[in-house]
């Protein structure tokens, strides 16, 4: 019997890893469009957070350092709140990666991917890329919600673009963490919980919703070094929103640099861990 020959694609300029990543990302983004319910609720959840925090806690959380005579407190809190919500929302993007990969494993599609002669990082590259890309839409809807309740971009369009890019970089980073967790999950139901559980302490032990100065003294260093705090602080500065009192720790003094360093370090740790795990992952 002669071996059937099939015409192969020429090696693309971007390399096979990125090529495979884009193929899988396209698949994941098509899923997003085909299941509008999921997209809808992933947008509705942060919008509800905005409304709850703005109208329930809004008047009760004073922002130190803000000029009390400038406007009523609730309005200042809304300016303060929105970058916090942005930060929390992009951090929660990682849960989608956790659940998505757990589902793929459960359905046996990871087995099939692994039996293909594709780059071993391709599936994870596609997953993280698609999950971060989806955040563009989520951030757009959130920004419009913010604008409607009185949040403003005060520092011009260039700084605002930097702020959004920083948020997307962070979304991409946590997607790698979420992917790594997802590959350990025995089923999608467990992933649903495990994907979220670490995010609550991470986002609440930060300056996202309340100023760090309002926390117990022993918690403050943790909050100051939390990458979410530097992300949110950098975003506040770039949008020209009230920042509250800025802490003494280095990350608080250099939030933009610290956020980028955190992202680079986290990807350098979790991407190889996730790829290693992927090579052994199999449906059960």
């Amino acid at each position: 019997m002669s071996t059937p020959t099939v015409p192969m694609r020429r090696r693309p300029i971007i390399g096979w890893g990125l090529h495979d990543g884009l193929v899988v990302a396209r698949r994941n983004l098509i899923q997003t469009i085909r299941v509008p319910e999921l997209l809808f609720f992933s947008i509705v959840q942060p919008v509800i957070f905005v409304l709850l925090f703005a109208f329930v806690f809004g008047g009760a959380i004073p922002i130190p350092g803000a000029d009390p005579s400038a406007a009523p407190d609730a309005s200042i809190y809304r300016q303060y709140l929105m970058p916090g919500i942005f930060g929390q929302t992009v951090a929660f993007a990682s849960a989608a990666s956790t659940v998505g990969l757990a589902e793929d494993m459960h359905r046996g599609i990871i087995d099939r991917f692994r039996s293909l002669p594709m780059a071993s990082g391709g599936v994870l590259l596609g997953r993280t890329f698609a999950d971060a890309t989806r955040q563009i839409l989520v951030l757009t809807v959130l920004s419009i919600t913010g604008l409607l309740i009185g949040w403003r971009i005060n520092n011009g369009i260039v700084d605002a673009i930097y702020a959004y890019l920083l948020l997307l970089l962070f979304a991409y980073t946590v997607s790698w963490v979420g992917s790594w967790i997802g590959l350990y999950m025995p089923n999608p139901e467990t992933a649903q919980t495990a994907g979220l559980v670490w995010l609550f302490p991470l986002t609440f032990l930060s300056n996202a919703f309340v100023p760090i100065t309002a926390m117990p003294t022993w918690l403050q260093p943790i909050a100051q070094w939390n990458p979410i705090s530097s992300l949110v602080l950098a975003t506040r500065e770039l949008f020209g929103n009230p920042t509250g009192t800025i802490g003494e720790a280095w990350p608080q003094q250099h939030p933009f640099a610290y956020t980028i360093i955190s992202c680079v370090v986290l990807i350098a740790i979790f991407a190889p861990l996730a790829v290693r795990r992927y090579r052994r992952a199999t449906a059960r």
Binding site: V6, R9, I30, R112
Partner: peptide
């Protein structure tokens, strides 16, 4: 893949075989 069409599935796997 549950959400892709039949043709889209085949295209995805074909692309990943580097055909």
């Amino acid at each position: 893949d549950e959400y892709l069409s039949g043709r889209e599935n085949l295209r995805m796997f074909g692309d990943l075989y580097h055909l």
